[in-house]
Design a protein around this nucleic acid. Structure first.
Lengths: 141, 141
DNA sequence: CACTTTACTGCAATTTTTCGCAATAACGTT
DNA sequence: AACGTTATTGCGAAAAATTGCAGTAAAGTG
């Protein structure tokens, strides 16, 4: 129940939106499993509990949750995957050879952010980047 | 004609693929304008010259050109955009407030890559990242 | 707790994207 | 320059994603 710590209910209501069973179900579905979840998997989980929930509602709900920063989207090798938004932004390394996924902390990128701010004035606020490359093992070969 | 310098023709043929008029047209269409181009715009440009080219062919051709690293895809605020792949990798900063787009060189990120390699062994090989944040002007406000 | 407002959902229709297959044409070989 | 191989295209159909709208229900108010 990772998302319970976020107090999503208030976060939704305080902005004038409504907390509906559908929204709770989709949020739960994104949480389950912890990592990246595909749309089909989300639909499967939601409809396992409430078969009547419409597919288009799930599309709209994910878009909504993304807008509220409760869910983040990643495009990994053409696939669109969803993940619950963590309080602390983090990023992913994906090995283009073996597919391994490594999670790294935001702080790994701050040296680059500093350089960018210094030279362009732009303050990066990137959450949930996906960087591809070669992991240590594959690189050794 | 930015892409002519890439000698795309040989790059395609040397891998056992064929150079077709459709592929040239799509490549030209992605080049025109220089920056990011939407699918519909690409279709419009292609069909302006060859109306018979099928929409599904354009889908497949873009996928193909991406596989050969002649075209790169970016997901910016939900939209899927295409751009010609440059010899030198670069990245984009997008201001989430005013929408301004700034192009930055790969070297801006190398401090972060170094840190990542140092701590995880992972060698990042990211091309064409999209980082959001606030540009200098918007940040001042 | 009933009432009102209007954000949200489900449904059906539309649009976008993908897929299978037969016909076509690129390109190496003769 | 004609021929054969087979990658590629166009077409139609299927699947996926989006949208409009009328009915439903969440949440504030009396």
């Amino acid at each position: 129940m990772t998302h319970h710590t976020l107090d999503y209910a208030n976060r939704i209501r305080q902005q004038g939106y409504r907390l509906t069973p559908q929204r709770e179900l989709v949020l739960d579905a994104v949480c389950e499993g912890g990592g990246h979840t595909s749309f089909d998997e989300i639909q499967r989980r939601v409809q396992a509990r409430a078969p009547a929930v419409n597919r288009s509602t799930i599309y709209r709900t994910l878009e909504f949750l993304e807008k509220l920063n409760l869910v983040v989207v990643a495009h990994i090798e053409g696939r669109t995957l969803y993940e619950i938004a963590h309080a602390r932004p983090h990023h992913h390394l994906i090995c283009s050879r073996c597919g391994a996924e490594i999670e790294i902390d935001e702080t790994m990128l701050t040296p680059a952010y500093d350089r960018i701010a210094e030279r362009t004035g732009f303050v990066v606020h990137a959450d949930h980047l996906v960087l591809s490359g070669l992991c240590g093992e594959c690189n050794a070969k």
